[in-house]
């Protein structure tokens, strides 16, 4: 599959890879493998990590060809998220920002209401805003109206590796929201990524699945292939798949009109 034939856009920027590396667990090896083997063109980065002055500041290890998507991780409300985003811009992180507002340290679930508020403020300031959210249709519409450039619904609690537990709700977003949908959080293995891509999401983001794999390089390769397979499946218009039971090959109503 040629990536070049199947690009996607975020604001005015075009990407060919549909894998985004998340920011939870970083190591230099992980970044290297994600870029070289998973094909990541976007890496999210918690600004609270990026602004470190330490020699091992993670910013030093991200290739210049990769787009950094700063996130507002650590923000507990809209006001703090806006503050972090503005700081990211000052540090030269272009205009991208993934808005992440979490005020629950136990489950790390996003606060859709505060996220929408921050999205509106930042979009008005010219940011390309990607809100991380619980996949609620009404909230997603709020994000669209607030000026979001894409929607990032969670597939399962962050770090849980549980896969697409919110699949039905993400499907509704795919039907109703005319923005790129990027599944964020919960993707625990390559088959989860394939499943999401087959549904028609624009891209998937993962971190824990690769960061905690036994072999980071192999897992990066696996994710690239899984995402490409899922995308091809979507483009090829996957045939009918029944969840249970069977489909009669001789229709019962065939006698009608005989």
């Amino acid at each position: 599959m040629s990536n070049i034939a199947d690009p996607w856009k975020l604001g005015d920027y075009e990407f060919t890879s549909r894998f985004i590396l998340g920011s939870g667990k970083y190591s230099v090896d992980l970044i290297d493998a994600s870029v070289k083997h998973a094909g990541a063109q976007i890496i999210t980065l918690a600004l609270r990590r990026a602004s470190s002055t330490a020699d091992d500041n993670i910013m030093n290890y991200i290739p210049e060809t990769v787009t950094i998507l700063p996130n507002t991780s650590g923000a507990r409300n809209a006001e703090e998220a806006v503050k972090v985003a503005r700081l990211a811009r000052k540090l030269g992180c272009k205009d991208f920002v993934k808005v992440e507002v979490v005020h629950d340290s136990k489950y790390l679930l996003p606060d859709n209401y505060e996220t929408a508020k921050a999205t509106e403020i930042l979009a008005n300031e010219g940011f390309v805003v990607l809100p991380y959210m619980y996949p609620d249709l009404n909230a997603a519409r709020d994000m669209v109206n607030a000026g979001a450039a894409a929607i990032m619904p969670l597939g399962a609690p962050i770090g849980s590796n549980k896969g697409l537990r919110t699949k039905d709700f993400i499907r509704i977003l795919l039907d109703e929201i005319d923005l790129p949908i990027i599944v964020d959080a919960g993707i625990g293995k390559p088959s989860h990524a394939t499943e999401a891509m087959e549904m028609g999401v624009t891209a998937v983001m993962a971190n824990t699945a690769i960061a905690t794999a036994g072999n980071v390089v192999q897992m990066s390769n696996a994710f690239r292939l899984a995402i490409e397979a899922g995308r091809l499946g979507y483009l090829a218009e996957t045939g009918r798949v029944l969840e249970a039971g069977a489909s009669a090959s001789s229709p019962l109503t065939g006698f009608l009109g005989e």
């Binding site: 970083y26 190591s27 609270r48 990590r49 602004s51 470190s52 330490a54 091992d56 650590g74 972090v84």
Partner: peptide
């Protein structure tokens, strides 16, 4: 393991 000097921002 990955030594992390700070993952924090005063907000």
């Amino acid at each position: 393991l990955q030594p992390v000097m700070s993952e924090y921002m005063y907000l």
